[in-house]
Amino acid sequence: MTKKIVVAITGASGTIYGLRLLEALAADPSVETHLVMSPWAKENLAVEATDYTEKTVRALAEVVYDDRDLGASIASGSFQHDGMVIVPASMKTVAAIATGLADNLIARAADVTLKERRPLLVVPRESPFNQIHLENMLKLARMGVEIIPPIPAFYNQPQTIDDLIDHNTMKLLDHLHLSNDYSRRWQGLAAAKQAARQEAFHA
């Protein structure tokens, strides 16, 4: 059975997190991806992900929407999907969702995802968080939103930036209930020590 996943990319730094998720979803034949990018996401694409163009990113999704199109299918609660991910999520978008300010398609799609009680994953990319950021995220968490900041793990012995990105992608796929082996998983302390010894031996 095909799963419909909505992916929104905002203007926060960390565009590559959204792109890697799109690539993972595109490789899964059981997933139909619906994509919306904010204007500043497109600007960041040119600055941060120089190996990608807007055309190549759009090609990773089955359906692509304009962020200004509040008449799009994903703006309605009657559009059934299996989860929405905002990655990366700017603090502006987090604030808009927390206050119900559905003034663009990303915020509106998130609003209807909440009201229909469907999974909503938010990947906030900001540091440090101020009190407003924290209060907005707490408000969303209390509504059932999954807040998944791209904080790296090191037990899996990452060797490259790609390893760190892949680990976050694995988490997002897990929370979308999509089986994957995108990154090394925790196998217990003994296995972690053995892996560390092997890495040191081959270094």
Results as ranks from 00 to 15, higher is better:
residue 120 L to M: 09
residue 165 I to G: 13
residue 97 I to N: 04
residue 86 I to S: 04
residue 181 D to P: 08
residue 103 D to A: 10
residue 14 G to T: 06
residue 5 I to G: 08
residue 97 I to E: 03
residue 33 T to R: 02
residue 150 P to F: 06
residue 171 K to V: 08
residue 155 Y to F: 13
residue 174 D to L: 10
residue 158 P to A: 05
residue 159 Q to E: 15
residue 108 R to Y: 06
residue 71 G to V: 06
residue 38 S to K: 06
residue 163 D to A: 12
residue 108 R to K: 14
residue 194 Q to V: 02
residue 172 L to D: 11
residue 3 K to T: 01
residue 163 D to F: 11
residue 113 T to P: 08
residue 83 G to R: 01
residue 31 V to Q: 08
residue 149 P to T: 04
residue 193 K to Q: 10
residue 104 N to I: 03
residue 58 R to T: 09
residue 28 D to N: 15
residue 72 A to P: 13
residue 50 T to C: 00
residue 150 P to S: 12
residue 149 P to K: 03
residue 194 Q to D: 11
residue 15 T to G: 14
residue 203 A to D: 11
residue 111 D to P: 07
residue 111 D to F: 05
residue 161 I to W: 15
residue 132 I to N: 04
residue 185 R to S: 03
residue 12 A to H: 06
residue 175 H to V: 09
residue 14 G to P: 09
residue 180 N to Q: 07
residue 81 H to T: 07
residue 21 L to V: 06
residue 110 A to N: 01
residue 203 A to R: 14
residue 140 L to A: 01
residue 2 T to K: 13
residue 70 L to D: 14
residue 79 F to W: 11
residue 8 A to V: 01
residue 26 A to G: 05
residue 84 M to W: 00
residue 167 H to D: 13
residue 116 E to C: 08
residue 123 V to E: 08
residue 149 P to D: 07
residue 83 G to W: 02
residue 94 V to Q: 00
residue 123 V to L: 08
residue 103 D to S: 12
residue 62 E to I: 00
residue 123 V to P: 08
residue 69 D to C: 10
residue 87 V to D: 00
residue 200 A to P: 00
residue 192 A to S: 12
residue 48 E to M: 03
residue 58 R to C: 07
residue 41 A to F: 00
